[in-house]
Design a protein around this nucleic acid. Sequence first.
DNA 1: AGGAAGGTATGATGCAAGTCGTACCTTCGT
DNA 2: ACGAAGGTACGACTTGCATCATACCTTCCT
Lengths: 122, 122
Amino acid sequence: MPDSEGHPDFDELELGAVLTALADPIRRQVVAVLAGEPDGTERPCSSFGLPLTKSTLTYHFRLLRESGLVRQVNRGNSRMAQLRRADLEARFPGLLALVVAETQQAGKGAPSVAGNTARAPH
Amino acid sequence: MPDSEGHPDFDELELGAVLTALADPIRRQVVAVLAGEPDGTERPCSSFGLPLTKSTLTYHFRLLRESGLVRQVNRGNSRMAQLRRADLEARFPGLLALVVAETQQAGKGAPSVAGNTARAPH
DNA sequence: AGGAAGGTATGATGCAAGTCGTACCTTCGT
DNA sequence: ACGAAGGTACGACTTGCATCATACCTTCCT
């Protein structure tokens, strides 16, 4: 399985897919964290402290990758994710800023993973 | 049932709700059409030529209203929708432009849902 | 070599989203 | 007064989304 599997090309970026990906609070938080770090920063999926199982993480990062929000690269053991900042800024200017602004504004208390998809565990 | 039912206040606008609303292509199209008209334009739900039943239309416009994207006001017979342009631009700058850009880029052929149901004030 | 760590694949499950049909309510125009 | 037009409310149904558990595969580190 090649490395660049599932990464849409720049001119294949679709607003619908990006908005769908960003509609989920978990994925929005991942994007916000990545956007808040210096450009080119790479982080493994497991480094976000999300209260989810590994398989659910894989699911979310697959959506982030296939929508074009992040690029994933195999670095030995783990699979690093980095924000496709330049592509996104060129294609959807201002969008990342909105996601960042949300977390900065809501980050007064300690929301950790706040979301509108509250759901009781089974 | 009062008129302003279900309209979030300006400082209640949430990015999550807005992105969720815009994740659906139908609703994105409605927003794009409204955004492409002069500010303050009012249109009834039925004037968008969407291939949906009345009840489904009500459903979509309810989401648009409750997320804060449009304001709905009773004008006699019908319920006019207008884009909350200033609020959205102040709160989520650049977001509307992204939605408009999508349709302009894809809309080389025919906008299909452009309809002229401009209304004279009473 | 063998285990731990990081990810993926697949199947199952529960809930939400989008759609429709029907019934019902207003308002407008005859 | 009556019907047509525009919307809403509610129930039913289908599909997709988010989640987990389990099993499996790599790569690193003793």
